[in-house]
Design a protein around this nucleic acid. Structure first.
Lengths: 225, 225
DNA sequence: ATAACACTTACAATGATTGTAAGGTTTTGA
DNA sequence: TCAAAACCTTACAATCATTGTAAGTGTTAT
């Protein structure tokens, strides 16, 4: 399941929160605001950060701002400060929810679940400028529409987008598709490349894959500009 | 900028809310809970719905569920009910935030802005509270993971979520799957329903489709609460 | 011109999805 | 309580999209 980081100095509350979320099935990391709280949190790569504002060494606001600037998220602020100004400040820094202590566990869980779901459903889109690929569902989006790529098509196109504007070598492609990198069956790569090119053609993306003779393939930018 | 729909029967509060959000630059539509609140909201296609729970003709909970099932969102519930059970129920139906009246305008604005930002740039997700379906890619998301549904599974589940909490009649389902509504092959519906139930089981969503004998099927809420 | 490299096409194999058929289980009402 | 109706489940067959194979055609560099 998910990993939650709790930033809280009060030891009793920390234990309590840890218990609550471990019972829910989350993995819980507790961080006290010592040397490098932000770096530690980023390293833990959690699916949610539960952040107290009243910390001894650091300002919770600063941590919140730093986390959001790094694109880590979501951040739920749980604090005893019930001033509206604090709440607005936190939201202004990018906090995603703000709850005041004492807070009923079920309310906390409901909001944590909601936030995690909201964030996790944001798909990772590989962006190639005039088209995007959803990394999970292999749906290809253009300005005018979308189609679902087959597995092989998706693997190849994602490799090309990923390497762009560099060239993807034939051995690499063969390896990511069929495992063994030592032996390369030229033909099956070519067949699958033809198929990918044909589907790209079909949705208004013609001539986007260039053959680098003897080496591999390369994704080209839209040449209509 | 964005368009906000306010569902609120108290005329004074409605005017006040409208003023607040128009000053913020939003276009505001006010809807009173008359004949077809859900249809009216969908037609308006807003970037956020501000929903009161205490409405004369309709239950705010029902409207919330219907909106989330249609993929309209986000929904912020603003209500005078301060019971935790109400809040949890609202979250269970897919509400995205829950504020109790009286509420300071700035707090409201902060949370509305936050929700709109969270929701922008996302796919259309049909929200059933504890799971979501990406309408385009037929990927089903739960708190713990995601799977891609087959075409038939997706069509049926989307119809159920869409109609929730109403019953989907067998003829309707048959029609959306196989075209002709006059003739209904009971068996093939049942087989596909079994398969859908089995896949839902497999990802931790058991017993969510109820058979309404002689009529059709109905999506149930998570009964673990 | 020719040899290496790349492309295309038709066809076969595969695997996931869907449909069929038959028999089992549950519910309803006399 | 029993029988009929409604519903569920299972195994198997058909279908369809995807992928692999084989053979032949085109292109490029020297």
């Amino acid at each position: 399941m998910g990993k939650i980081v709790i930033v809280e100095d009060d030891i009793f509350l920390r234990e309590e929160l840890q218990n609550i979320f471990e019972k829910e099935g989350y993995t819980v990391y507790c961080i006290r605001s010592f040397d490098h709280p932000v770096e530690d949190i980023i390293f833990a790569n959690p699916c949610l950060i539960l952040l107290d504002l009243n910390l001894p060494n650091y300002s919770g606001f600063d941590i919140c701002r730093a986390l959001k600037a790094k694109g880590v998220g979501p951040v739920l602020v749980l604090t005893s400060r019930d001033q509206l100004s604090d709440e607005l400040h936190a939201f202004g820094l990018g906090a995603d929810d703000y709850l005041t202590k004492p807070c009923h566990p079920q309310r906390l869980i409901a909001r944590v679940d909601k936030l995690i779901r909201l964030y996790s459903n944001r798909h990772i889109l590989l962006d190639a400028g005039d088209f995007q690929i959803d990394d999970q569902s292999n749906v290809l989006y253009t300005g005018t529409g979308s189609i679902t790529l087959s597995k092989n098509e998706a693997v190849m196109l994602k490799a090309l987008v990923h390497a762009s504007p560099s060239v993807v070598r034939k051995e690499e492609l063969f390896h990511t598709l069929w495992g063994s990198s030592d032996y390369v069956d030229e033909n099956i790569l070519q067949v699958n490349m033809t198929r990918l090119r044909k589907t790209l053609d079909g949705i208004g993306l013609p001539n986007r894959i260039k053959t680098i003779r003897g080496i591999g393939y390369q994704l080209l930018e839209d040449d209509s500009l």
